[in-house]
Simulated scan of single mutants.
Amino acid sequence: MAPAAPPAVEPVVGEPAAVADLGGERALLVADVHAGIEVGLRYERGVELDSHADERRERLCALVAETDADRLVVLGDLAHRIAAPDGDEREELAELIRAVTDRVPMTLVEGNHDGGVAEAFADDLDVIGSGGGLLSGGDLLSGAGDASDDGTAADTGVGVLHGHTWPDPALLDADVVCMGHEHPQVRLEDAVGGSRVERAWLRGTLDPAAFVESGEADTVAGADPPELVVFPAFNDRSGGTWVNVDGQSFLAPFLPDALPSGDAYLLDGTRLGDYRRV
């Protein structure tokens, strides 16, 4: 029998979302939903914005249907406020989670804004911890390093993490690693000096030595390093890192070193080339 093809992670054209074909399961992946951001901005900065909660929820559900997904995976920061969800934010989260899980199971990879979310919605979500985990075959999502049914390590598939902390070194055995947290954006200028900022994807070969804390990469087997895919934020109000502007600092502890050579893509699929030279 020929070996199975490695899983593909393909962006949904025009959307900050991608589909991962895992063989027995088709997963829709998004990052940085930041539900309740309007509540957070009011509380943190005194900024009043109309809520886009309904639009976010409806768009997620529409994408699940459009992509024929079997599962929704959120790569961290499902919620916006770092504290445990409360009040209007908790209500928005409850409605969003209920709307999605009425259709498909939902998995949260814990991000730095998700404090208390897993506990508050323990009966509704599958949760992967902040160190990341693996999506493999048609099995339920597992933590990195978990054993498969035959007792061997789940050492292929799609690695998922948020990106705010050092990942589990076992993610280096994935074929593709997907992350959020960074909210990558590019600043584009025209010939007459005008400019605009666009959300972007970053994709390239991952540098294992820079991806995990010093010395840990040597403990992980694997002939070929995985591809790293940095997701744009699903929430268009959450700001981000201008990856092609000098002086912008990356948020993840392993970036930009873990992506020494990678391309930026706009949501419509336009390839911009090396993300540092756009």
Rank of each mutant, 00 (worst) to 15 (best):
M106A: 01
R199Y: 03
G133W: 01
A144R: 08
V177E: 06
E198C: 07
V127T: 14
C178Q: 06
H113A: 01
E110D: 00
D168Q: 14
D146H: 12
S130V: 05
G133D: 02
V127P: 04
V177M: 05
V197H: 00
S130K: 11
C178H: 04
D86I: 13
N112L: 04
R199A: 14
E92G: 04
R98G: 08
D124G: 03
D139N: 03
D88V: 15
F121I: 04
L134Y: 07
N112V: 06
V117Y: 02
S148Y: 04
G180A: 10
V109E: 00
L125T: 11
P167V: 11
M106E: 00
G116M: 03
A120V: 02
C178K: 12
V177R: 12
P167E: 10
A174K: 11
L161R: 13
A83N: 11
E119S: 11
A191W: 07
H164S: 05
V186T: 12
L96E: 03
V176L: 10
L125P: 13
F121R: 02
T165V: 14
A191D: 14
H164Y: 02
D114S: 02
G194F: 01
D150W: 09
P184V: 05
G145E: 11
G163S: 06
G193C: 14
V100C: 01
F121K: 02
L188N: 10
T152W: 11
D173G: 14
L108I: 04
W166S: 03
D139L: 05
E182F: 12
D88S: 15
S136C: 07
L140T: 04
V160I: 11
D88C: 07
G163K: 09
S195F: 13
L188M: 14
L93C: 06
H162Q: 01
E110C: 00
G151Q: 13
A83P: 03
D150H: 02
G145H: 07
D139G: 12
P85I: 09
L171S: 09
E110G: 00
E189R: 13
G116E: 04
E92K: 12
A191Q: 12
W166Y: 10
V104G: 04
L140R: 11
P85M: 13
M106T: 00
W201C: 01
L141D: 13
H181Y: 09
G193I: 12
G132I: 08
A191S: 14
V109K: 00
D150E: 07
G159R: 04
I128P: 01
D124M: 13
R103W: 04
L141Y: 02
Q185D: 05
S195W: 12
V104K: 10
